[in-house]
Write a protein that binds this DNA or RNA. Sequence first.
DNA 1: CGAGAGCCTG
DNA 2: CAGGCTCTCG
Length: 141
Amino acid sequence: MFFYTRYPSSNVLKTFFPDVKFNRCITSQLIKWFSNFREFYYIQMEKFARQAIVDGISDVKDITVSRDSELFRALNMHYNKANDFHVPDRFLEVAEITLHEFYNAISATKDSDPSWKKAIYKVICKLDSDVPEEFKTSSYL
DNA sequence: CGAGAGCCTG
DNA sequence: CAGGCTCTCG
């Protein structure tokens, strides 16, 4: 599910767990869970973006994310351990865009600003796609 | 005041 | 992942 949306609202998130009766506690736990997913995602992005800079890559266009990228493997390992479904191409695009955002920001030393990631989050949150209905049938996450 | 983001920690 | 804490926003 994360491969489709990075910023689902709590209500949207809930619809993907039809078999769960939510109370305040479980809901916040679910929100927290997804928040952790985002955290991991951005941590990886920053890590690989910095690595690209250390590696001396000077053009953003030389930074790409494909299914056999180290970055993709790290993410897939985390969100899709069993590798039981196909990751949408759109996710690869979003991942690449995210990586570029980090690369550009760090290159411009914007990371000296305590809240420099906010600008990136603002861009990425607009790239969410709809999650296929099939995910609502079983506890896919 | 409560939900949720974001950051840090275990 | 889950807890805990600060901070923003409706």
